[in-house]
Amino acid sequence: MTSRSVALAVLSVIALLGALTAAATTGTPAVDVEAGRRKAEVCAQCHGPDGNATAPGTPSIAGMPAFYTHWQLIMYRDGRRRDPQMTPFAERLGEGDLADVAAFYAAQRATARPASTDPARVAAGRPLAEKFHCTSCHGPRLLGQGQVPRLAGQDFDYLMKRLSGYKAKSASDLDGMMTMVAQGLTAADIESLVHFMASLPPAP
């Protein structure tokens, strides 16, 4: 199998099923990518006009699965994920806005973030992504799917902050899954994983 077909077959998991079921049924409300572009203008200052951010610590959301971005916006709006900049913004968005903004970012192409990853750390992190089952939900190339975010090529500092936060049980978590699986990680594991994730190409 090609790596693409492996990617689809092995862990089509959450996203593939989600995408298939959502697309196949009439079950997903119509979303408006163009409306999403307008509604996302206010996000551009930090996340970039197309969702590719440049400031260290700020995540790129271009090419993120729509379910992921949508759920995160819901969590900000409802106070389940907190951030001094994101919270007031998300509180002003209505239900339809969340879906449109999420769809807009899902339709953008992710570009790589500059990261000075250490090849030795990258090599150490690669097997850890299998061992700690990151690929089970995030997909074989960590591109994310469904409600699960893309990690490949994400901002280094942001990845460090999130993964360390899950280990510390202080990061927001939609369903408790990340907090649970992060408990087995050592500080060295986290660092190696982040080097590896940041080094991966962010788009298929």
């Binding site: 077959a9 092995v10 862990l11 089509s12 998991v13 959450i14 996203a15 593939l16 099923l17 989600g18 079921t21 959502a22 049924t25 009439t26 079950g27 997903t28 409300p29 379910f67 949508h70 759920w71 819901i74 239900e95 969340l98 879906a99 999420a102 939900c137 469904g146 409600q147």
Partner: peptide, 19 residues
Amino acid sequence: SPLAPIPAPPSPTPAAQIP
């Protein structure tokens, strides 16, 4: 195995689109 739980959609479906 490609089997995995079916994720909960973040948006409810409008009545007119429910089959």
